Computed example of a mutant assay.
Amino acid sequence: MYPTNSQSQDSINYQRIAEAIDYIKVNFKSQPDLNDVAEKLNLSPFHFQRLFSEWAGVSPKKFLQYLSLDYAKSLLKEQQATLFDAAMKTGLSGTSRLHDLFLTIEGMTPGEYKNGGAQLYINYSFADSLFGKIIIASTHKGICYLAFVEVEEEAFAMLLKAFPNAQYQKHEQTMHKKAIQLFNKDCSDAAEVKLHLKGSPFQLKVWEALLKIPAGKLATYGTIAAGLNNPKACRAVGSAIGKNPIAFIIPCHRVIQSTGIIGGYHWGTTRKTAIIGWEAAKTLGQ
């Protein structure tokens, strides 16, 4: 069942593409063709072909190749530790520099961190994105929370859990709109986005490291730990990534297992696979 008419066309299209991805993953060994997948979605092959091409910028066949584990493994092989370190130290080129150019991180004070957001005023709003509905929240300093949601009430409850002592108002801020620009296919005009994060010093370092992973590329827990000069901290890195409070913008979806397996994702492996494929298609299509 697809979203109601009150939801944006982008959200509807994402649900269709997500269903197609699920179908391909389950039936991968039988190599379903365009007609098979289109029939599963109750769309004509022509409509499905056009929808996929508009959404991803490439044909369905090529896009599905990007989603395969072989593609993930090939990216991993290309990204040797020296290249990862170089990206960490020198920045990136082209539109993949987006995070380096426009994102700055400020950690909350020890007092704000310990008291669960007391004295903080948080504005939050909901919006549609290419990968589903999101909740986004901010303090006066920057975006403090972003998550994919299914039920708005449950999403707000999770936000309350993150900042139990803060004061809340449902109001879309200008900075919310700026952050949502990062979901656009052409985000070259995205304005500066600042993040105001609650985390330990180690967590903040890991989240900053995630921002250095190029769009269309992948890293492992081990390469991130090595980049932080702590190669034995893979488990701690994984824990910090799992607590990432800013979906998509802090790209924890670009971290996979050392075997090349996509691995888990707080907001669903189908969504993670779709984002990886979308970024790869956009990067290779430039």
Rank of each mutant, 00 (worst) to 15 (best):
M1L: 13
Y2M: 04
S6D: 08
S8Q: 03
S11L: 15
D22L: 10
D22F: 10
Y23E: 08
I24H: 09
I24N: 14
V26G: 12
V26E: 13
F28K: 14
K29I: 14
S30L: 03
A38Y: 01
F46R: 10
H47I: 04
E54P: 02
V58T: 03
P60M: 01
P60W: 04
Y66E: 14
L67W: 13
S68W: 11
L69N: 05
L75E: 15
E78Q: 13
A87L: 08
L92A: 10
T95E: 06
R97D: 12
H99L: 07
T104P: 03
I105N: 03
E106V: 14
T109D: 12
G111W: 04
G111P: 02
K114S: 09
G116S: 12
G117N: 03
I122E: 10
F126R: 12
A127H: 15
D128H: 14
L130E: 12
G132L: 10
K133V: 00
I135M: 13
A137I: 12
S138Y: 08
G142L: 06
I143P: 03
C144N: 06
F148L: 15
F156G: 05
A157E: 13
K161D: 08
N165F: 00
N165R: 02
K178G: 00
A179R: 00
L182P: 02
C187F: 14
C187R: 10
S188Q: 13
A190M: 09
L197R: 10
G199A: 14
S200A: 15
K205Y: 04
V206L: 12
W207P: 08
L210Y: 05
A215P: 07
T223P: 03
G227I: 09
A233D: 05
I241M: 06
N244H: 11
P245K: 08
A247K: 04
F248Y: 08
I250Y: 04
C252W: 05
R254A: 01
G260D: 06
G263Y: 14
H266F: 11
T269F: 07
A274P: 07
A281I: 06
